[in-house]
Design a protein around this nucleic acid. Structure first.
Lengths: 132, 132
DNA sequence: GGCGATTTACTCGGATAAGCATTGTCCGAGTCAGAAGGG
DNA sequence: CCCTTCTGACTCGGACAATGCTTATCCGAGTAAATCGCC
C-alpha cells in the first residue's frame, strides 16, 4: 500500500479541518501554508473530498471547508477512496491473457483479498483516532 | 492491490514455463504467441525475472528460459516483487508534511500493515498451486 | 447619521499544461545447429 | 564416410521512444464584507 501525494495531502488536510474548534469554515490557503502544500493543487483535492461527501464547502469572502460528518464518523478509507477511487483488486491484462482461467481466478482472488483487507483496515481508523 | 500489465504478463509467463514437461528451455516467442503478448516487451520482463533469480536464461539457437527453482519453491510474491520492486508500505509526501507526527505514524503503520498482509498472502501461493 | 447600491477582495470551481512512471520498440552481442569442404 | 571449419539464423540483452496517469497551475464564477454616495 503506497499512498500517493494527493492522498497524503488529503488525509492531513481533513485532519487539520477536523481539529479546528470553531465552527467557522477553514480556508484552503491556511492549510496550504501550514503544511507547505501547493495551494491550487490542494484546492483541487479538497474539491474531490466535497464531491465524495467528506467535506462541505462554502464560497464567498468568508467561505472555506468544513467536515460534513463528525471526526468520529469519518474514516481514513473515506478519504483515500475519495481521491484514488474505490480500492478494488484486479489484474490489468485480463482480456489479453486467454486460457489459464484457473490460475487467473486464483490470482484475481488474491488481489481481491488484499484489497478487502486494506479496505477493512482503513475503515477501522477514524479521523478522531488520528487526532488522539 | 492492482497488478500492472507487466506483472500480470510475468505471472502467466512463469506459469507457462513451469508447466513445460521437457527440460528444454522455453523460448520467448512461444509464450508471446500463446498469450498474445508483445514479444519484445515480454522479453524485457523475463530479463527482470532472470535478474531476480526466478528464471535462468540461455542464449543461442537452442536458448530460452527455464525455472531456477521448482514450481513448489517459487511463489507469486517472488514474481511480483521481481517486476514491481519490493512491496513496501509508505506515504509519498513524508518530507513535505511537517508536524502531525502522531497521525503520520499511525497512517504509515496502516500502510505497513497492508503491505505486510499482502506480502504474506502472495508468499503462501506457489506456482505449483496455480498449476493445480 | 442611516440606508442602500456598488465596488472589491476574497473564496471555491473546472478546464488547462508539466513531470514522471509504465508500457512498448528497436538494434546489437552471444551461441549453437547445421551445412560446406577437405582428408 | 568422418572430422573440422565456417556460416548463418536464432536466441537473449540493454539502450531508445510512445503512452497514460499523477502532479501542478491558471483563469473564471460566486459571495459576502467593506466602501461610497445619497437621503
Amino acid at each position: 500500500m503506497r499512498l500517493g501525494k494527493a492522498t497524503t495531502y488529503a488525509v492531513f488536510a481533513v485532519l487539520y479541518i477536523a481539529q479546528q474548534k470553531k465552527s467557522k469554515p477553514v480556508q484552503g490557503h491556511e492549510i496550504a501554508r501550514n503544511y507547505g502544500i501547493p495551494l491550487e493543487y490542494l484546492l483541487k483535492i479538497l474539491q474531490q473530498l466535497v464531491k465524495a461527501q467528506v467535506l462541505i464547502s462554502e464560497r464567498g469572502r468568508t467561505g472555506g471547508f468544513q467536515m460534513r460528518k463528525s471526526a468520529s464518523q469519518t474514516t481514513v478509507l473515506d478519504i483515500v477512496e475519495a481521491v484514488e477511487g474505490p480500492i478494488t483488486g484486479e489484474i490489468s491484462a485480463r482480456r489479453e491473457i486467454t486460457g489459464a482461467s484457473r490460475a487467473k481466478k486464483i490470482v484475481e482472488g488474491l488481489c481481491r483479498d488484499s484489497a478487502g483487507f486494506t479496505r477493512s483496515l482503513l475503515k477501522k481508523v477514524t479521523v478522531q483516532k488520528l487526532i488522539g
